[in-house]
Simulated scan of single mutants.
Amino acid sequence: MADRSGSYQDLVVWQQAMDLTVTVYSTTKSWPKDELYGLTSQVRRAAASVPANIAEGYGREHRGSYLQFLRIAQGSLKELETHLLIADRVGIAPNGSTVALLASSESVGKLLRLLLRKLAGS
């Protein structure tokens, strides 16, 4: 994919995914300590996986590999959303703290879909 210039860090989707991950870490600091190795850890790993897979895919030489890593990022995003919904339902997350995270996740998801469509069509 030699036609690319710049870096994965220039991608708005990567930037937003990084922002989401930082916010997830900040938000989960207030979650119960007995969940540190449970849902808190899963939420953090899923969040961190999104920008990591975008970056890893960008570094691949073939478009097909890049698309596959973007799809993995999409899966991690859905995993994150599900874990956040679980945290909300079981009362781990303070009232309403997942609303902004879910909105950010939706924004990242839209950008990922746009990027996937662009790369798949070209």
Rank of each mutant, 00 (worst) to 15 (best):
G91W: 09
S76G: 13
P51H: 13
A17W: 01
G75I: 08
S104G: 15
L102C: 03
S26C: 06
Q74P: 08
Q15P: 11
A17E: 00
S5T: 14
R63Q: 13
L111I: 03
R63W: 06
T21H: 04
N53F: 07
W14F: 15
Y66A: 07
S122W: 11
T82P: 06
V90H: 07
L20I: 03
R113T: 08
T28N: 06
L115H: 05
K33E: 11
S5V: 14
T82V: 05
N95F: 13
E35C: 01
E79I: 09
L11C: 10
S97T: 13
R60G: 01
H83C: 05
I72E: 08
V24A: 02
L112I: 04
P32A: 02
D34G: 04
S5R: 07
L119N: 06
V43E: 04
E106V: 09
Y37K: 05
D34V: 07
Y25K: 00
R71W: 11
D88H: 15
K78V: 14
G75K: 01
A48V: 13
L80S: 01
K118H: 11
L85R: 13
L116W: 12
S7V: 09
L112W: 06
L80C: 05
A103H: 04
R45D: 07
Q68N: 14
D10E: 15
L39K: 04
K29E: 10
S97W: 06
G57M: 01
R117A: 15
D34N: 13
L111Q: 14
S76W: 08
P32V: 03
A87L: 00
R89S: 14
G57T: 03
T28A: 05
V50P: 03
A55D: 08
L101W: 08
Y8C: 06
L77M: 08
K33V: 13
E81H: 14
G75W: 14
S76T: 11
L119H: 07
G96F: 00
L11I: 09
Q16W: 08
P32I: 02
R60C: 01
L67P: 03
D88P: 12
G59V: 02
L102G: 03
I92E: 07
A87E: 07
A120F: 00
A55Q: 13
W14N: 10
T98L: 02
N53G: 06
Q68V: 12
G38H: 12
M18S: 09
Y58S: 00
T23L: 11
A120L: 05
L67W: 10
G75H: 11
A52R: 11
R117P: 00
H83T: 03
K110H: 10
A47S: 06
A47C: 01
L70T: 03
P51T: 13
S7N: 11
P32F: 04
I54P: 09
S41Y: 12
R60F: 00
V24N: 04
Q15F: 06
K118M: 02
V43Q: 09
V43F: 00
A103G: 03
G75N: 09
L36I: 13
L39E: 08
D19A: 15
